[in-house]
């Protein structure tokens, strides 16, 4: 888990390094963010298919949510 913490720190540093990009939008500037493809889960069934397939063919899983349950495929 030490390595995970290091990667977490690296991501935070990368985000901080991108501070020049950091211009949180005003309420009237959120039109683009409201586009469906800008959301994190634009197509739930597509996302579920992908996570199910990859978690049954690879060792890694997680990161997306909780409560998915298990399966005999892995």
């Amino acid at each position: 888990m030490k390595r995970l913490a290091l990667v977490a720190c690296a991501v935070v540093l990368a985000l901080l390094a991108g501070c020049s990009l950091f211009k949180p939008p005003q309420p009237w500037e959120k039109g683009q963010l409201a586009r469906p493809e800008m959301t994190m889960s634009a197509d739930p069934l597509d996302e579920r298919f992908g996570q199910h397939i990859y978690s049954s063919k690879e060792s890694a899983s997680g990161g997306y949510g909780v409560g998915g349950g298990g399966c005999g495929c892995n």
Binding site: A8, V11, V12, L15, G18, L21, F22, K23, P24, P25, E29, K30, G31, Q32, L33, M38, T39, M40, S61, G62, G63, Y64, G65, V66, G67
Partner: peptide
């Protein structure tokens, strides 16, 4: 399973998210 996540509107054209999960 546990999850902690942060979603941030970086700009009018950028949305970022970091999630940590523990199982």
């Amino acid at each position: 399973e546990l999850i902690v996540g942060l979603t941030q509107a970086i700009s009018a054209s950028d949305l970022a998210q970091v999630n940590l999960t523990y199982t």
